[in-house]
Each structure stands twice: as structure tokens, then as C-alpha cells.
Amino acid sequence: MNILLAIEGAISQGVLWGLMTLGVYITFKILNFADMTVDGSFALGGAVSAILIVKGMNPWLSLIPAILTGMVAGGITGILHTKIKIPEILAGILTMIALYSINIRIMGQANTSLLGESTVISILNGMIGASTNTLALVIGVIVSIIVIAILYWFFGTEVGSALRATGNNEYMVRALGANTDVMKIIGLMLGNGLVALSGAFVAQSQGYADVGMGQGTIVIGLASIIIGEVVFGNRFNFAYKLAAVVGGSIIYRIIIAVVLQLGMKSTDLKLLTAIIVAFALAMPVVSKKVRYTLCVLLVAFMILVTKQIVPILLIVLALIIVKLISSVICKVFQKDESKQEVKGA
């Protein structure tokens, strides 16, 4: 019973963190930019929203300054990289480190409690009166759908196309008359705005903002994106890919919730996340044989750490089933590209 409750909480957390994952998806996957800023801008969004609520602002309204400050943070990383030519990783780290101090300045201390303050969840609770988890889930799903719709539209526009192409081939984009520096800055602003929005929601749902809440955001984002791709398939149309990213975030949270319930130390989580990411990045590179070995090793590792066999095997089984279902769905709807490959000059 406990585990079901934990999973319910994990799903709503997964959706709220899913917004962050969408932000990381924009910078990492579309723009091909490993943006470390997100560790700072996640906490920035939480800090800005929390402090404004404490000062008496409407929780929904407080999301807007949270997004805007996140965009500024992303914009600064973009300028550091494009105008001052600082390598992308370092540019992101610089902004991230700066944000640590700035976030404490914003809050006046290392954290801000929202105990007794109204939040987007408590407002809704007053209106309908469901459990916090359910409300967080409802809000998360609605906001995610809106965000995915906006992103789907944006990346179909002229600017959006140029942005996608920038992540693909900068030389071409410049030769075709678009400013790649501006494209990168726009992409980073968009991504970090989303990450900050996610931070604001998470802070409001957990009831506090903390300067350390963003730690490891980039890795969690990557893990979620990769899980989403592996489980739901990296294909179909763009909206499906974005939804898969949010799905990956949910699955990531469920895995974390389950292994915690099974007795894994919460301090070991970051190790587990890092292993999942390294593991997933290894998949396309290594041969099939090594791939299966790695899979078995990961399951063995989980069993060893949690000292539980049946639940872990059940999770593996569940993942395989989800994967099969999604691949069937994709096969039904997808035009098969591979058939077109045969002809050629």
C-alpha cells in the first residue's frame, strides 16, 4: 500500500519535473548545447516564486517573474558563449555558480518556507478539495499540455525551424542568412524559462524553496529524456517526442520512489542517476552482447542495493510491457522511413 502511495506522489512530481525536462530537451537535444545553467535556474524559479508568494503575490502570478528570471539566466549563458566565446559547459557553470549567490540574495537566506502560504495547489484545494498529489498532477498535466502545444507551434515557425537547424548544422544556418548567435540565445532563454517554471511549481508543491533544490537538475533531465526515448521510442512526430520526455520524467520519479521504498538510501540516489545516464549513453555505442550484459548488471545492482528481487523484476517487466505497447502504437501510426532509403543516386 505504501508503495502505491509513493508511486502516486512520484507521478505528480514527475509531471512537474517534466517541465524542467522539456527545458533541458530544448537545449540539449534540439540546440545540441549541454547547458549547466539549469541547476541554477531551477532553484532560481523556486526562489523567485516562493519569495514573491511570501511577500503576498498571487501564486499563479508569481510564476511569470519566475519564468522571466529563468530566461534572463539562460540569456546570460548564451551571451557568455556566443559573444565572449566561452565554451558552452563553462559558460553554463559560470551562470550556475553565480546563481547560487543570487538565489540566496533573492531569498535573504538559504531557503524560504511556504508553510501556511497560499500556493497554486492550496488555491485549487480550496475550490475542489482533492488530495495534494492529485491536484499537483492535474495542474502538471494541464500546464504540460499547454507547454507542449506552444512548443509544437513555436518549432514549426520560421524562427523555430532556424533554431532546430542551428542545433543540426550551424554552417548551413549562417549560409542561409540566420544569426546562429541569436538562435542559441533564444533557445537557452526558452529552455531556462521552462526550467525556472518547473522550479516554481516544485517549490510550491513541496512547500519550500531551497538554494540546493536545483542540484543535479541537468543529470536528472538527461536521465528522464533518455528513459523517455528508450521506453517510448524516439520517433513519430514532434509533439509525441515532447510527451515522451514528460513520460520519461514520470518513469524516472517512479523508479526513484520505488527503490527508496525498497530500502535504498536517499543519499545513494545521485549515484544511481549518474549510473542510469552513463548506462543509457553507452547503449548506442556498445555491441549488442555488451548491451545485454550491462542491462543484467544494472538489474543485479538494483537488487543488490535494495535487497529485493521480486519488485525489481516486476519493474523491469512493467518497463518492457510499456515499451512493447508504445512500439506497437508507433508502428501503427508511423510512416516507415526505412522503406524509402533503398532508392539512391
Partner: peptide, 19 residues
């Protein structure tokens, strides 16, 4: 999509549909 990008060479890119 590649052709649409090229078709907009020298024009201001806005928020109208990319193709």
C-alpha cells in the same frame, strides 16, 4: 524543411509558419 529554410534566405524570419 531544408528547402523552406533556403527559401527564406535574406528575409526576416518571424513567427509565421515555417513552410
Amino acid at each position: 524543411e531544408n528547402l523552406a529554410m533556403a527559401y527564406r534566405r535574406g528575409k526576416v524570419r518571424g513567427l509565421s509558419w515555417g513552410i
